[in-house]
Design a protein around this nucleic acid. Structure first.
Length: 534
DNA sequence: AACGATCACAACCGCGGTGCG
DNA sequence: ACGCACCGCGGTTGTGATCGT
């Protein structure tokens, strides 16, 4: 049967088999829609169909591939008459028709593997798929997005607690070591089992957070923030820059801090494949001590362990892949506009906190210290185990953090008193009715539904109504307590404008060295056309 | 039963990389 | 060097199924 007749036959029986779910609807694109790239209406034989594939179309495509092999997908339409663009054909083949595809739900083993891979690669779905035979990038991506989204909504941690525990341990170890060698970095099974063409991460030039004098101590921040920093430095720092969509999506190669940027829930390699490049850059930044030592230890976090859930590096409400410069967006829809965003989110603690603080700001819903539950159910699958552990964590150990945070808040409040006049202005600025109400904080509000460090969970850069009575502790936002206080006395950093005036991004501070960072941050904040005016 | 919310997944879109003329 | 076509990737959208009220 030739393809043309096959089409006719197929079209007449479109509702049989295959994608019955969506078969009833199919869009027909105008040629305009497909004029670009592979989508081009090569044959010029009329509009290309869009939407769900029918079994008949599948048959045509399979037949074509059998005859001509893969590739040259635009020729499919020419030779088979299939009213699909080459791009669509390729996708259909790769995701559904390939004979080597594995159907069905992910197994627990595969889920673990995905966690591993995502921790290592971030949102490199295709590469992850290459490590999971029979699985497609789209499949993995969907899996990740949906599951993570679900867990975020439930306020559940993404990564196993055990993982975080190890990260913490790794922190302590690295404190002694100070540096990490490639060997250490790759001793774990994860590394050994992966064949990624990931450049070795060189940590010898990397200064770990605990070795840096200006780095906050482990007691300066919630443990979970440590995990953020240690295990997922990248996503943590993303918060520094508001979530704004760039006109162009930067590529990894273009993004200086991509490893950070690509992080978060969705895109957050615990240890980035570009670590060498990135870490060196970041570590050179005086205020951006990278907490990455544990990263190295994360390599074995997943391994051989029951993934029992925790507030891991990428916990529930951290933002999604947020390239630090440029594409600052949250990958997870549920994150973008969480229901908690309005009202319940905290004050704009620091509109533009130091990168350190970012870790703290992006928190899992629960900030409880890690409590490992060795009796957690593990036979029921990864997600179940995580859920179980998360629930077991809930409701416990918030008190200590609460007290600590309150204490810090009081401290900050006292300091803020000195800046009362500023504060008044800030209140005005914060006033949604104020013409200046849409300042940086508002920008952050609009685009950065990132959960802030907090006791009660949901805070954000949101200019919440009560932000003025919560000078919530930027405690963890400064390299160390001394410098923190110093800066606090210099500026009411709850005021973005004040920060700008004081050269938060520029002069007068030790952060000045990376002005390009600052400029980009401002660009991200205010848009390309609104750079900071010194 | 009706409705809305959410889930799960397929498909689309836009972009960058690459190869070729 | 340049433009074009193709390819692949990552993010987003659309849609039917399922669940909860």
């Amino acid at each position: 049967m030739n393809l043309q007749s096959c089409i006719l036959t197929a079209m007449s029986s479109m509702t049989s088999g295959g994608d019955t779910r969506k078969i009833s609807k199919g869009r027909w694109s105008s040629s305009l829609d497909e004029k670009v790239g592979v989508g081009g209406n090569v044959g010029g034989e009329g509009p290309l169909k869009k939407g769900p594939w029918t079994a008949a179309e599948d048959a045509i495509l399979v037949e074509y591939v059998k005859k001509h092999g893969q590739g040259n997908w635009n020729a499919v339409q020419k030779h088979s008459g299939l009213a699909r663009c080459g791009k669509s054909c390729r996708l259909r083949w790769a995701n559904h028709l390939r004979p080597d595809l594995k159907k069905g739900a992910f197994t627990a083993e595969e889920e673990n593997r995905i966690l591993e891979l995502h921790a290592k690669m971030g949102n490199k779905w295709a590469r992850m798929a290459a490590e999971l035979p029979g699985r497609t990038d789209n499949e993995i991506k969907n899996y990740w997005n949906t599951r993570i989204k679900r867990m975020q909504r439930a306020g559940l941690p993404i990564y196993p607690e055990e993982l975080c525990q190890r990260i913490l341990n790794g922190n302590q170890e690295s404190q002694n070591v100070g540096t990490m060698t490639n060997e250490a970095c790759h001793h774990d099974d994860l590394s050994q089992t992966n064949n990624f063409d990931i450049p070795d991460v060189e940590f010898k030039n990397f200064k770990f957070r605990h070795g840096l004098p200006h780095v906050p101590s482990i007691f300066d921040m919630p443990e979970s923030s440590l995990f953020d920093q240690s295990s997922d430095s990248s996503h943590s720092y993303n918060f520094l820059f508001p979530t704004m969509r760039p006109t162009k999506r930067p590529r990894e190669s273009e993004m200086l801090y991509d490893s950070f940027g690509s992080c978060s829930i969705n895109a957050a390699p615990l240890f980035d494949q570009y670590g060498n490049y990135t870490f060196e850059k970041i570590s050179d930044h005086p205020g951006l001590s990278l907490p990455c030592d544990p990263v190295l230890n994360t390599t074995d976090q997943f391994h051989g362990d029951n993934l029992t859930g925790s507030h891991a590096a990428l916990n529930g409400n951290a933002s999604a892949s947020v390239p630090i410069f440029g594409a600052m967006k949250l990958e997870l829809p549920s994150l973008q506009y969480p229901e908690t965003q309005h009202g319940s989110w905290g004050p704009p603690m620091s509109p533009l906190p130091s990168l350190e603080s970012v870790d703290t700001l992006i928190q899992s819903p629960t900030l409880e210290p890690i409590l490992s539950d060795p009796i957690s159910p593990q036979s029921s699958g990864l997600l179940e185990a995580i859920v179980y552990n998360s629930k077991s964590l809930k409701g416990s150990n918030n008190d200590l953090l609460l007290q600590e945070t309150i204490a810090t808040a009081n401290e900050v409040a006292n300091i803020s008193t000195l800046n009362h006049s500023f504060q008044t202005e800030w209140d005005e600025l914060g006033d949604p009715n104020s013409p200046l109400g849409q300042s940086a904080a508002s920008v952050l509000t609009d685009y950065t539904p990132v959960r802030m460090c907090s006791v009660d969970g949901y805070q954000s850069t949101e200019t919440s109504q009560d932000h003025d009575d919560k000078h919530e502790a930027p405690t963890t936002q400064f390299p160390d307590s001394s410098s923190k206080k110093k800066i606090l006395k210099q500026v009411d950093y709850t005021q973005p404008d004040a920060l700008l005036d004081l050269g938060w991004f520029g002069n007068n501070t030790k952060y000045e060295s990376d002005q390009f960072v600052q400029q980009d941050a401002l660009g991200a904040l205010f848009g390309d056309n609104c750079q900071h005016q010194p």
